[in-house]
């Protein structure tokens, strides 16, 4: 008895670690963008763990997409605010 399956955090950390060679071959600016995407996954580990799957890439990609959406949403709000200020002027 005991745990048979690796904890979700360990599984995704192994997946992200496996991207190391891919990251090395990227230009430095793209490496930083990739790091942001990877941290999007890390900040949603608890949610990912609620979706156990054979293939960890489904929750992984969902987390990255959510991170991207969040940043787009922030930009939309900022744009809206700037447009509002411009219209007031």
């Amino acid at each position: 008895m005991g745990r048979s399956v690796l904890p979700w955090r360990t599984r995704i950390e192994a997946e992200l670690h496996a991207l190391g060679p891919f990251r090395r071959a990227l230009p430095v600016d793209e490496q930083m963008l990739l790091d942001v995407l990877l941290n999007d996954v890390r900040t949603r580990r608890a949610a990912g763990g609620m979706l156990p799957a054979h293939d960890p890439w489904n929750p992984l990609l969902l987390s990255m997409m959510l991170g991207l959406s969040q940043r787009i949403h922030k930009l939309e709000l900022r744009l809206e605010r700037l447009e509002g200020e411009a219209a007031d002027d």
């Binding site: 048979s4 904890p7 900040t43 580990r45 608890a46 609620m50 156990p52």
Partner: peptide, 9 residues
């Protein structure tokens, strides 16, 4: 089934 308690990041 083989999961532990929940940790919210």
């Amino acid at each position: 089934a083989d999961r532990g308690g929940l940790y919210l990041d």
